[in-house]
Amino acid sequence: GATAVSEWTEYKTADGKTYYYNNRTLESTWEKPQELK
């Protein structure tokens, strides 16, 4: 079936920290989303 993983994109900030952005909800988070675990 369809999965929600594709909504999240992993980015890195200029200082090398990783964060996650959800293209559907426009939410961003420092925590790894449940969908990616």
Rank of each mutant, 00 (worst) to 15 (best):
G1D: 13
G1W: 12
G1V: 13
G1N: 14
G1K: 07
A2N: 13
A2Y: 11
A2F: 12
T3C: 15
T3Y: 05
T3H: 13
T3N: 12
T3M: 13
T3K: 05
A4R: 08
A4Y: 06
A4P: 12
A4H: 13
A4C: 14
V5T: 12
V5E: 12
V5W: 14
V5P: 13
V5K: 09
S6Y: 09
S6E: 10
S6R: 08
S6L: 08
E7T: 05
E7D: 12
E7W: 08
E7M: 05
E7I: 06
E7S: 05
E7Q: 06
W8H: 00
W8N: 00
W8K: 00
W8R: 00
T9P: 00
T9A: 10
T9I: 14
T9E: 09
T9Q: 11
E10D: 02
E10Q: 08
E10A: 09
E10L: 05
E10W: 05
E10T: 09
K12I: 12
K12S: 07
K12L: 10
K12A: 05
K12E: 05
T13Q: 04
T13F: 04
T13Y: 03
T13D: 12
T13I: 03
T13P: 01
T13M: 06
A14M: 08
A14Y: 04
A14I: 11
A14K: 11
A14R: 09
D15H: 04
D15N: 08
D15I: 03
D15G: 07
D15F: 05
D15Y: 06
D15V: 03
D15R: 04
D15K: 05
G16T: 00
G16K: 01
G16A: 02
G16M: 02
G16I: 00
G16H: 02
G16W: 01
G16S: 02
G16N: 03
G16Q: 03
G16P: 00
K17F: 08
K17H: 08
K17W: 05
K17R: 15
T18E: 03
T18W: 04
T18Y: 08
T18P: 05
T18N: 04
T18L: 09
T18M: 06
T18Q: 03
T18D: 03
T18G: 02
T18A: 05
T18F: 07
T18I: 12
Y19C: 11
Y20M: 01
Y20H: 01
Y20E: 00
Y20D: 00
Y20R: 01
Y20Q: 00
Y20A: 00
Y20L: 01
Y21K: 07
Y21R: 07
Y21H: 06
Y21G: 01
Y21C: 09
Y21M: 07
Y21T: 07
Y21Q: 06
Y21D: 01
N22L: 01
N22W: 01
N22K: 01
N22T: 00
N22E: 00
N22A: 00
N23K: 11
N23Y: 09
N23S: 12
N23A: 10
N23R: 11
R24V: 15
R24I: 15
R24W: 09
R24Y: 11
R24G: 04
R24L: 13
R24A: 08
R24T: 10
T25G: 01
T25D: 02
T25W: 02
T25H: 01
T25R: 01
L26H: 15
L26Y: 13
L26I: 02
L26S: 11
L26R: 13
L26Q: 15
L26F: 14
L26W: 07
E27Y: 04
E27P: 00
E27R: 04
E27L: 06
E27I: 07
E27V: 08
E27Q: 10
E27H: 04
S28M: 15
S28W: 15
S28H: 13
S28P: 03
S28R: 13
S28Y: 15
T29A: 06
T29Y: 06
T29I: 07
T29V: 13
T29F: 07
T29L: 06
T29P: 01
T29K: 07
E31P: 02
E31A: 06
E31M: 06
E31L: 08
K32V: 10
K32N: 04
K32G: 03
K32P: 07
P33Y: 03
P33S: 01
Q34K: 09
Q34D: 15
Q34P: 15
E35Y: 07
E35L: 05
E35I: 06
E35R: 03
E35H: 06
E35V: 06
E35T: 05
L36N: 07
L36P: 05
L36S: 07
L36M: 10
L36G: 06
K37T: 14
K37W: 11
K37A: 15
K37Y: 14
K37D: 14
K37H: 13
K37F: 14
